[in-house]
Amino acid sequence: MSGIFKSSLGKKYLMAGTGVVLLSFVVGHLIGNLQVFGPPELINRYAYFLHSKPALLWSARIGLLAALVIHVSTAARLTMENRAARPIGYAGGVAFGSTWQSRHMFLSGAVILAFVAYHLAHFTWRLPAVNGLGDFTKLQTVLDGKTVPDVYGMMILGFQVWWVVLLYLIAQVLLLAHLSHGIASAFFSLGLRNHVWAPHLQRAGLALSVALFLGFVSIPAAIFTRVIGADYAEKTRMELRAATQFEAALVRGKEAR
């Protein structure tokens, strides 16, 4: 069984298996996020529900983190071994009969990894330095009589910043490239395809990656073009400014004293 971690084929099983786990998260994440097209209470209630079940939330997070660590570390090992297998390259010509996506899985993966780090800092850890606006932890709303984080307001406000939208777009283009090769390839690596299934898997993989791309891009696009939440954003922006200014005033007051 140690062949799974040592052999070239085994490492591809690891890539495929963890890739499927990460893909299932990406699908679930999109379905959750699309609730932003509903009333503010919808996604806020969903976010509150997730955070009110810490055991479930952390099981999922630890599972995903483990899958991510295996996926990334195995990719790094494979890339190093693959490069070592050809110490001297060719003078001319690119790899014949292959797509750009298939030849640049490590590059697209590296950009997606960097984006995941940014995305966590942006909306999960809510670091004020990376959103171009202010302290998102100050955004609160009242839901069913309880004060909860205003996720809707955070998204509506966050995607009105042009360079944030641009970063998200770049990441989505590379995710599209990564998945358009990766989904069908996972079945290939696991040996779960034959000549009957191969063309269907290729098409289904491409269709799913395009659907995910359109779904994810629709959110910042709709918000940036003010199709959704424009009024709510103005209200939230004022609340955020007021909260930030109130804090600044407190600090100034303390300093004055």
Binding site: A85, F96, R103, F188
Partner: peptide
């Protein structure tokens, strides 16, 4: 010391006997 498979399909494109990568799966 051969590398691993990324399923790019270059191998079947140049194979003089046009052997399919379906055999790799």
């Amino acid at each position: 010391g051969f590398g691993a498979c990324t399923a790019t399909g270059s191998c079947q494109a140049v194979c003089p006997k046009e052997i399919s990568i379906a055999f790799i799966a």
